[in-house]
Write a protein that binds this DNA or RNA. Sequence first.
DNA 1: CGAATGACCAAGC
DNA 2: GGCTTGGCCATTC
Length: 105
Amino acid sequence: MKNLFFKKVYEIVSRIPKGKVISYGKIASFLGNPRQGRIVGWAMHSSPNGIPWHRVVMKNGKLPFQETQEGYLNQYNLLLKEGISFSKDKTVDMEKHEWKIELPL
DNA sequence: CGAATGACCAAGC
DNA sequence: GGCTTGGCCATTC
């Protein structure tokens, strides 16, 4: 996409190491908009190819989908493949897997 | 340009 | 502890 915000979001997301996750809020916060995960969400929704969008979860570790939606299992399996552990309630263990944004872009 | 929408979040009831 | 509201801002119609 064209926007700087989107671009930065993609930059960050594409730098998430394998086996790590991050929350929408963290990304938004890092970009200077603490309460705007929605925009990050939008960025993910229309993310270009090659963006590991599945490594982005909600702050509480939940996936951004309803369990009734298809993408849910999609993301779930992708994360499992990368060695991310889930709790019984299908939430990511944020303590273990939360990735800290290290560098500026 | 105005109104609605969204893979969010925090606060309040 | 689940539901509602307000906030925020890019995108779409």
